[in-house]
Design a protein around this nucleic acid. Structure first.
Lengths: 146, 146
DNA sequence: ATTCCTGCAAAATCTTTGCAGCTAG
DNA sequence: CTAGCTGCAAAGATTTTGCAGGAAT
């Protein structure tokens, strides 16, 4: 996991460099994304930020997430059930392993991924720009409970 | 690509075996899914089916897709932009390669995928049940146009 | 000072549900 | 017959937008 403080500073600098204003609400949202503990949903972020800004509206959370997505500093993970989760700690595409029981999300280190990407490029003649690689299963803790 | 006729029969039989009624509307939807030409969206399916059943409602398309998903005979692909596409021709999870320019979707054969899956299981101690592997890029045709 | 941002509420999507009538088995 | 299916319309859920006041630079 990247250092949240460092991520926070990187994102804030990038926002500033792109001419966006640094408001307290925005900073609060960036702070949560920089940590991205547990890959929060929009609602999670809203709830969290309301502790400090009780009047914060959902719309503002959405608008800031769109903004931060647009500068490439948060990764959006849409799931089959329609829910979205966010990762601003490690915003470049990386594989996820999701427990279908407890919803825990793990970020594994995978050596074979580059190999797979090369194989795809070769097999299809595409220029690969991006990817989304997720595995669904049951984590060891939930397996033990059965 | 699997033979659409064969896929059609497999799906219909499975519906029948599970005690679902075989209505003309249902057959029309199954027929489109069995082909899944171009990985259609709900709207695509609705438009297509309306040629034969002008009164067909969107709700019926949704309900049948949910039903056919529940028997595991169609794969739902949700995309970052919120749109869903369907594949009833090859309903088990498989990698996709999507052209971000022309939206073409290609199904590559990838040898390294099993290897990757094993690596994931080993690295995380998860029991892997399912996966979603998509690559985004630019196809050779669109590359040539630039 | 100006431009951008925020909060609120309304709008826009997309998907699901309730219900009455109809149809396959 | 009768359980399940369809069409319609209304309701839900989630995300986006318009606008007026307010804040950052």
């Amino acid at each position: 996991m990247a250092d949240p403080k460092e991520r926070f500073e990187v994102i804030v600098r990038k926002l500033r460099d792109n001419g966006h204003k640094i408001t307290p609400q925005r900073l609060a949202i960036v702070g949560i994304l920089a940590r991205s503990e547990g890959h929060p949903s929009v609602e999670d972020i809203h709830d969290e930020v309301k502790k400090d800004f009780p009047t914060m509206s959902l719309a503002t959370v959405y608008r800031n997430i769109i903004l931060i997505k647009s500068i490439g500093e948060v990764l959006e993970l849409g799931f089959p059930d329609g829910s979205n989760r966010y990762d601003g700690n490690k915003p470049s595409p990386h594989p996820h392993v999701i427990c279908v029981k407890c919803k825990k999300i793990v970020d594994p280190d995978l050596d074979s991924l580059d190999e797979l990407k090369n194989e795809v490029a070769q097999a299809t003649n595409f220029k690969i720009l991006n990817h989304r690689v997720d595995f669904f299963g049951i984590c060891s803790a939930c397996l033990a409970k059965e």
